[in-house]
């Protein structure tokens, strides 16, 4: 594995009124790595991704990706750098078809402007076809050909999660941020999703930052794990190290509503 630092999060602090969502969080991601962030509810995991997306602006700290300080960019400038994202509560374009959702994500890869688009001549039409080919490949990869013209608002939950992954892939990301991609799925759907994630990681070498509650899955697929609790990074290491880390076990067992603490130990 390449050890060069790809994404570096440095002393990020974020507060909402009284709640400290992130306290002095630092970590690095290497190119081609599959890193998981875990932690109890409200630990600050989603907030961390939102900071990387420059959707929240940290009160303090920097996030460097390929030489750019993401915290200084407007949120729409992050995606063109090659950072794509799926969301904890699916955030698809509900009124569009699957195909259109993916095509919409090709936005940053297309150049034609307002006038070319309105005339639909030359460049515009050519770009539409070229990008359509990329999108169709992703659709084939995710095995969603049969629903490509269905309106996503009407699809079942599991499929919508998959389409959302497809939309993120359509950006051809260098860094893929996945916020609980398997939450609320049944076992079979989870396995499919895990397979897709691993394929993306291995076949395309995409760097992946994954938030997931299902410990078993995280331990199986992640190369490295970071644990957040109440905004603090309390542990970092390989899945094995995390499993046996006493602070982590404490955090999960001490957590009243913690969903699956025993998994940590038993797996």
């Amino acid at each position: 594995m390449d050890n060069a630092v790809y994404l570096s999060v440095e002393n990020v602090n974020l507060a909402f009124g009284g709640t400290q969502a992130l306290i002095d969080v630092s970590f690095n991601v290497s190119e081609g790595e599959l890193l998981a962030i875990i932690g109890p509810n409200g630990a600050g995991k989603t907030s961390m991704l939102n900071c990387i997306n420059s959707f929240y602006r940290p009160d303090k700290g920097r996030i460097i990706f390929k030489g750019h300080d993401l915290t200084r960019l407007s949120s729409h400038r992050v995606a063109p750098l090659g950072i794509a994202r799926t969301f904890q509560n699916i955030a698809l374009y509900t009124g569009m078809s699957v195909l259109e959702n993916l095509m919409a994500a090709r936005h940053v890869h297309m150049n034609h402007g307002m006038i070319a688009g309105a005339l639909y001549f030359g460049r515009a039409q050519k770009e539409e076809v070229e990008n359509r080919i990329v999108v169709e490949e992703i659709i084939d990869f995710l095995e969603i050909e049969h629903i490509r013209k269905a309106i996503v608002g009407a699809l079942p939950y599991g499929l919508r999660k998959r389409v959302e992954l497809g939309r993120a892939l359509a950006l051809e990301p260098k860094l893929l941020l996945l916020d609980e991609p398997m939450a609320g799925m049944n076992l079979e759907e989870k396995e499919d999703m895990a397979r897709f994630i691993l394929d993306i990681h291995e076949l395309q070498g995409t760097t992946i930052l994954l938030i997931e509650h299902d410990m078993g899955l995280v331990m199986d697929i992640a190369e490295r794990v970071i644990v957040l609790d109440f905004g603090l990074k309390i542990a970092e290491g390989t899945p094995d190290e995390i499993k046996n880390n006493p602070t982590v076990i404490q955090a999960y067992l001490g957590e009243e509503f913690g969903a699956s603490p025993p998994d940590v130990v038993s797996q």
């Binding site: 994202r85 259109e100 309105a118 770009e127």
Partner: peptide, 30 residues
Amino acid sequence: LAANISRSRLGRAFVAIRDNDLAAELLGVN
């Protein structure tokens, strides 16, 4: 012109904003 706008990059950016502005922004739509 309107029909072409609706089926090209511009139109998809518009609908993306309508359907989920925040997601659209994080996917690169200004």
